[in-house]
Nucleic acid binder design. Structure first.
Length: 414
RNA sequence: CGGGAGAUGGCAGAGCGGUUGAAUGCACUGGUCUUGAAAACCAGCGAGGGUCACACCUCCGGGAGUUCGAAUCUCCCUCUCCCGGCCA
């Protein structure tokens, strides 16, 4: 959630920054006006309430002294009606305010470059050189089928398109990757957690998926529950409405979950193979930190994911997302894109974001700073998406005969 | 899914419809005492909004209602616990 006070006081600055995210400026203008009116109306209401409270207390005194209370009663009846009226106005304004405010994305950090879409993202660094082949490398769907690792047809039969069955050594590799990643993350101070895959509305609002992006989520029929689109949702909301003590920060967590996304709006993209699925495995990193440390923790997370790829021998690059490509909750995001020889392209395999206090404000996650309660910063990032990592291994470790070598570090986990 | 009990501050646990945002205990923080610690004693100690700071407003699971006044009364919802059914 946007800091409304910040918007009131620094309107020009905030709206300029939000232009990077293509936020309708009239909406911001409206938000500001509502918030100012709300403040005034609230003051009126509170004054009426104060009077009501004060005079109501007199009843006890009057009763003791045996005084007549009828006049007082009539006065308060009237006041009560005014309170009801004032209250209605305030509630209406509050509703409007939260409705608008909850759909406004986070403000991009200063370091975020201007830009429309992924074309304008900035490559920060290349790690490892892509392997060369003395034959034409295949795409992962060919390799997966010839090795019997993936069964696309039967996945569709069981559910629908964008669902896949993973088999044999493919399934083993997936499990190995999960265990390897978690171990890797634990060695860097991230504690493992297992969480529910189904979350309620409040939880999804806390991290920003709701109310705006309900169409992207699988909803449980007749329940106000949703399948999680990422472990970020339950992990961050572990601390929903909590006040953490300073010395337990930063909290660093890692978790393997399945993720579920409707992929509404991506019709026709990556329909072949396993790049874009409705269900996929992912090992996630989440951190809760003091504001002053979040940049440092952010870099740790980027390094953690990048070093993990490096340890698997996978060439990749770090990309700083431009304003137009930033997600709703993110103030700053670095993507890791892995080299896929079959496609001859770098493709996203990890995305690490710092949301600053945006999610913390929504989810009411605070910490005690001396006597004051302050909002924490929340960060999240894929350790790696398991499916895409498998694709990368298939394509990068393919042999002339179509077989696939397993990276050395994974052998103990197979 | 059926039957019963309950939901109050970090925890435990009081609370007659009237100056109760809430007794008490524990925990915690500061102080006195002590060589130091413990004990004892004194003081402070929920959250959100508001204010330069006060004042003031809201919050006793959530929502609606009765009342001049609700933690206390009524209705609905949610959750928790116990018993039974089902089950990894």
């Amino acid at each position: 959630m946007l800091d409304i006070k910040l918007l009131q006081n620094n309107f020009e600055e905030i709206s300029t920054k939000l232009r990077k995210k293509r936020v309708d400026e009239t909406l911001l203008e409206e938000l500001k006006e509502i918030s100012i009116e709300l403040k005034e109306r609230k003051k009126i209401l509170e004054e009426l309430q104060a009077e009501q409270n004060k005079k109501s207390k007199m009843f006890g005194v009057y009763a003791k002294e045996g005084k007549d209370i009828n006049e007082l009663k009539a006065e308060l009846s009237k006041n009560k009606e005014e309170i009801a009226k004032a209250n209605e106005i305030v509630k209406e304004l509050e509703d409007k305010l939260t409705k608008i405010a909850s759909t406004i994305p986070n403000i991009p950090d200063e370091s975020v470059p201007d830009g429309e879409d992924e074309e304008d993202n900035i490559e920060l660094e290349k790690i490892l050189t892509p392997p060369s082949f003395d034959f034409t490398p295949k795409e992962h769907w060919d390799l997966a089928e010839s090795n019997g690792w993936l069964d696309f047809k039967r996945g569709v039969k069981l559910s629908k398109s964008r669902f896949t069955v993973i088999r044999h050594d493919g399934a083993k590799l997936a499990r190995a990757l999960i265990n390897y990643m978690i171990k890797f993350n634990e060695d860097r101070g991230f504690k493992e957690v297992m969480v529910p895959y189904i979350a309620n509305r409040e939880t999804l609002v806390g991290t920003g998926q709701l109310p705006k992006f309900e169409d992207d989520l699988f909803k449980i029929e007749d329940e106000d529950l949703f399948l999680i689109p990422t472990a970020e949702v339950p992990l961050t909301n572990l601390f929903n409405d909590e006040i953490l003590s300073q010395d337990e920060l930063p909290i660093k967590l890692t978790s393997y979950t399945e993720c579920f996304r409707k992929e509404a709006g991506s019709a026709g993209r990556d329909t072949r193979g396993m790049i874009r699925q409705h269900q996929f495995s992912k090992v996630e990193l989440v951190a809760i930190s003091e504001p002053k440390d979040s940049e440092k923790v952010f870099n740790e997370m980027v390094d953690c994911a990048s070093d993990l790829l490096k340890s698997l021998g996978l060439a990749h690059r770090k990309v700083l997302l431009c304003g137009g490509d930033l997600g709703f909750s993110a103030a700053k995001t670095i993507d890791l894109e892995v080299w896929l020889p079959g496609q001859g392209k770098y493709r996203e395999i990890s995305s690490i974001s710092n949301t600053f206090d945006f999610q913390a404000r929504r989810a009411k996650i605070r910490y005690k700073d001396g006597k004051k309660n302050r909002l924490v910063h929340t960060l999240n990032g894929s350790s790696l998406a398991v499916g895409r990592c498998m694709i990368a291994i298939m394509e990068n470790y393919q042999q002339r005969d179509g077989s696939i070598k397993i990276p050395k570090v994974l052998e103990p986990y197979m």
